[in-house]
Lab assay of single mutants.
Amino acid sequence: AEEIWQQSVIGDYLARFKNDRVKALKAMEMTWNNMEKKEKLMWIKKAAED
């Protein structure tokens, strides 16, 4: 689920960090860890469908 979420937001994060992939990935990891369980559930369901 986290991978699907990352694939959907990586472009936004890379743009925000001027294509600094290391910073973008760290920010994504922090965002994922801070997400509410119900927000993650949507992505977990999406992962299950694929």
Score class of each variant (00 low, 15 high):
residue 30 M to H: 14
residue 48 A to S: 11
residue 6 Q to L: 07
residue 39 E to K: 03
residue 31 T to A: 14
residue 23 K to W: 02
residue 25 L to R: 07
residue 21 R to H: 11
residue 1 A to V: 06
residue 45 K to P: 05
residue 13 Y to A: 01
residue 9 V to R: 03
residue 28 M to V: 02
residue 47 A to H: 06
residue 3 E to L: 14
residue 2 E to P: 15
residue 43 W to C: 03
residue 48 A to C: 15
residue 21 R to E: 10
residue 36 E to R: 05
residue 45 K to R: 07
residue 19 N to A: 05
residue 48 A to N: 10
residue 38 K to Q: 12
residue 42 M to K: 15
residue 27 A to C: 07
residue 12 D to R: 05
residue 47 A to E: 05
residue 24 A to D: 00
residue 5 W to C: 01
residue 47 A to P: 02
residue 33 N to Q: 12
residue 7 Q to N: 10
residue 11 G to F: 10
residue 44 I to K: 06
residue 31 T to P: 01
residue 19 N to D: 12
residue 47 A to L: 07
residue 33 N to M: 12
residue 4 I to F: 14
residue 15 A to F: 09
residue 34 N to Y: 05
residue 44 I to L: 10
residue 16 R to Q: 10
residue 44 I to M: 09
residue 42 M to F: 15
residue 10 I to K: 04
residue 11 G to E: 11
residue 36 E to A: 12
residue 25 L to Y: 13
residue 25 L to Q: 10
residue 38 K to Y: 13
residue 43 W to E: 03
residue 5 W to T: 00
residue 3 E to P: 05
residue 11 G to V: 12
residue 9 V to E: 02
residue 7 Q to V: 07
residue 8 S to V: 10
residue 46 K to P: 04
residue 18 K to P: 08
residue 18 K to N: 15
residue 27 A to K: 04
residue 13 Y to H: 02
residue 32 W to V: 00
residue 13 Y to S: 00
residue 32 W to T: 00
residue 40 K to E: 02
residue 26 K to F: 10
residue 18 K to T: 07
residue 22 V to E: 14
residue 13 Y to K: 00
residue 47 A to C: 04
residue 35 M to F: 03
residue 7 Q to K: 13
residue 28 M to K: 00
residue 30 M to E: 15
residue 5 W to S: 01
residue 2 E to I: 09
residue 10 I to Q: 06
residue 41 L to M: 10
residue 17 F to C: 06
residue 31 T to E: 14
residue 15 A to D: 11
residue 36 E to D: 14
residue 49 E to P: 05
residue 36 E to P: 15
residue 18 K to A: 12
residue 17 F to G: 01
residue 49 E to F: 09
residue 19 N to E: 08
residue 10 I to N: 02
residue 37 K to M: 15
residue 11 G to S: 11
residue 14 L to F: 03
residue 41 L to V: 06
residue 27 A to D: 05
residue 22 V to N: 13
residue 37 K to Y: 15
residue 12 D to L: 07
residue 46 K to F: 09
residue 19 N to S: 06
residue 31 T to Y: 14
residue 14 L to M: 09
residue 32 W to F: 02
residue 22 V to D: 13
residue 18 K to D: 15
residue 41 L to S: 06
residue 44 I to S: 06
residue 21 R to M: 13
residue 22 V to P: 06
residue 35 M to R: 00
residue 35 M to P: 00
residue 33 N to E: 12
residue 50 D to T: 14
residue 19 N to G: 14
residue 35 M to Y: 02
residue 2 E to T: 05
residue 35 M to E: 00
residue 40 K to P: 00
residue 27 A to F: 07
residue 12 D to K: 07
residue 14 L to E: 02
residue 40 K to F: 02
residue 7 Q to E: 09
residue 8 S to Q: 09
residue 12 D to M: 08
residue 2 E to C: 11
residue 45 K to N: 12
residue 28 M to S: 01
residue 8 S to C: 12
residue 4 I to C: 12
residue 49 E to W: 07
residue 48 A to T: 11
residue 19 N to L: 06
residue 21 R to N: 08
residue 1 A to T: 03
residue 12 D to C: 11
residue 42 M to E: 15
residue 7 Q to T: 09
residue 1 A to K: 02
residue 1 A to G: 14
residue 3 E to S: 13
residue 23 K to P: 03
residue 17 F to S: 04
residue 46 K to S: 06
residue 47 A to W: 14
residue 28 M to C: 01
residue 17 F to V: 03
residue 2 E to R: 11
residue 41 L to E: 15
residue 45 K to H: 08
residue 37 K to R: 12
residue 33 N to K: 11
residue 24 A to G: 01
residue 7 Q to L: 14
residue 29 E to L: 08
residue 11 G to A: 13
residue 2 E to G: 04
residue 28 M to Q: 01
residue 9 V to G: 01
residue 42 M to S: 12
residue 16 R to E: 11
residue 17 F to L: 04
residue 25 L to D: 05
residue 48 A to G: 09
residue 34 N to R: 08
residue 49 E to C: 12
residue 50 D to Y: 14
residue 12 D to P: 02
residue 6 Q to P: 01
residue 47 A to R: 02
residue 29 E to I: 09
residue 19 N to F: 09
residue 30 M to N: 14
residue 9 V to L: 04
residue 23 K to C: 07
residue 20 D to L: 02
residue 44 I to T: 05
residue 44 I to Q: 13
residue 10 I to L: 11
residue 43 W to K: 03
residue 34 N to A: 12
residue 9 V to Y: 03
residue 38 K to R: 08
residue 26 K to D: 12
residue 25 L to F: 10
residue 8 S to Y: 13
residue 41 L to I: 07
residue 42 M to Y: 15
residue 1 A to P: 08
residue 37 K to F: 15
residue 50 D to M: 15
residue 49 E to R: 11
residue 34 N to M: 09
residue 44 I to H: 11
residue 2 E to F: 15
residue 30 M to W: 11
residue 6 Q to G: 10
residue 18 K to E: 14
residue 22 V to F: 09
residue 29 E to Q: 12
residue 33 N to G: 08
residue 8 S to P: 00
residue 26 K to R: 13
residue 31 T to H: 12
residue 48 A to H: 10
residue 14 L to H: 02
residue 18 K to G: 14
residue 23 K to R: 13
residue 21 R to Q: 08
residue 23 K to T: 11
residue 49 E to L: 11
residue 29 E to A: 10
residue 37 K to I: 15
residue 4 I to M: 14
residue 10 I to W: 09
residue 24 A to L: 02
residue 3 E to I: 10
residue 48 A to P: 03
residue 29 E to G: 06
residue 10 I to T: 03
residue 7 Q to M: 10
residue 30 M to A: 15
residue 11 G to K: 13
residue 14 L to V: 03
residue 8 S to A: 13
residue 16 R to V: 09
residue 40 K to S: 01
residue 2 E to K: 12
residue 22 V to R: 12
residue 39 E to V: 05
residue 31 T to V: 12
residue 47 A to K: 03
residue 7 Q to F: 07
residue 41 L to N: 08
residue 40 K to D: 02
residue 38 K to G: 11
residue 26 K to E: 14
residue 7 Q to G: 05
residue 45 K to V: 08
residue 6 Q to C: 10
residue 10 I to Y: 10
residue 6 Q to I: 12
residue 43 W to T: 02
residue 44 I to N: 05
residue 12 D to Y: 08
residue 35 M to D: 01
residue 31 T to R: 07
residue 10 I to D: 01
residue 44 I to F: 10
residue 4 I to W: 10
residue 45 K to W: 06
residue 18 K to H: 13
residue 7 Q to I: 09
residue 7 Q to P: 01
residue 44 I to C: 10
residue 33 N to A: 14
residue 42 M to C: 14
residue 5 W to P: 00
residue 50 D to F: 12
residue 45 K to M: 10
residue 41 L to K: 03
residue 10 I to E: 04
residue 24 A to H: 00
residue 4 I to T: 07
residue 32 W to I: 00
residue 28 M to I: 04
residue 2 E to S: 10
residue 28 M to E: 01
residue 3 E to H: 12
residue 27 A to R: 02
residue 1 A to W: 08
residue 16 R to D: 06
residue 20 D to T: 01
residue 9 V to S: 03
residue 40 K to A: 01
residue 12 D to H: 08
residue 3 E to M: 14
residue 9 V to A: 02
residue 12 D to Q: 10
residue 22 V to T: 11
residue 16 R to C: 11
residue 32 W to P: 00
residue 26 K to P: 02
residue 42 M to G: 11
residue 40 K to I: 03
residue 29 E to R: 08
residue 5 W to Q: 00
residue 36 E to I: 04
residue 17 F to H: 09
residue 36 E to Y: 02
residue 26 K to T: 08
residue 8 S to R: 04
residue 27 A to P: 00
residue 7 Q to A: 15
residue 40 K to H: 03
residue 38 K to W: 14
residue 4 I to K: 07
residue 32 W to A: 00
residue 17 F to P: 01
residue 30 M to P: 01
residue 46 K to H: 06
residue 24 A to P: 00
residue 49 E to T: 12
residue 48 A to V: 10
residue 35 M to I: 01
residue 6 Q to T: 07
residue 22 V to G: 11
residue 9 V to K: 05
